[in-house]
């Protein structure tokens, strides 16, 4: 899980071009949107692309997406649950 979360952080930084952000700057449980990293709805679509390309997980419903993309922690848990299933 820890390795997955670190990898996710690196992938998020690259996908969203968060130039001055390092993986250690992102707290596992900090909200990605709004206050936290200050991401917006277009970023959430970009993160869904990230999940699909790197983890073969397709999120169809934007409302479901919002739950999965709350934080790095929720993303990692979702990926793990899909991989087990």
């Amino acid at each position: 899980m820890e390795a997955l979360k670190l990898k996710l952080k690196q992938q998020i930084i690259e996908a969203l071009n968060l130039q001055d952000t390092k993986p250690e700057d992102i707290d596992d449980n900090a909200p990605l949107f709004g206050e936290g990293l200050g991401l917006d709805s277009i970023d959430s679509l970009e993160l869904m692309v990230l999940l699909e390309r790197n983890y073969q997980i397709k999120v169809e419903d934007p409302r479901e997406g919002r739950k999965i993309l709350q934080s790095v922690q929720t993303m990692a848990e979702f990926i793990t649950s899909k991989q087990v299933a």
Binding site: I42, L45, E46, V49, E52, R53
Partner: peptide, 9 residues
């Protein structure tokens, strides 16, 4: 990407 998983930006 054969029309799948496309970045919207």
């Amino acid at each position: 990407y054969a029309e799948t998983a496309l970045n919207p930006t």
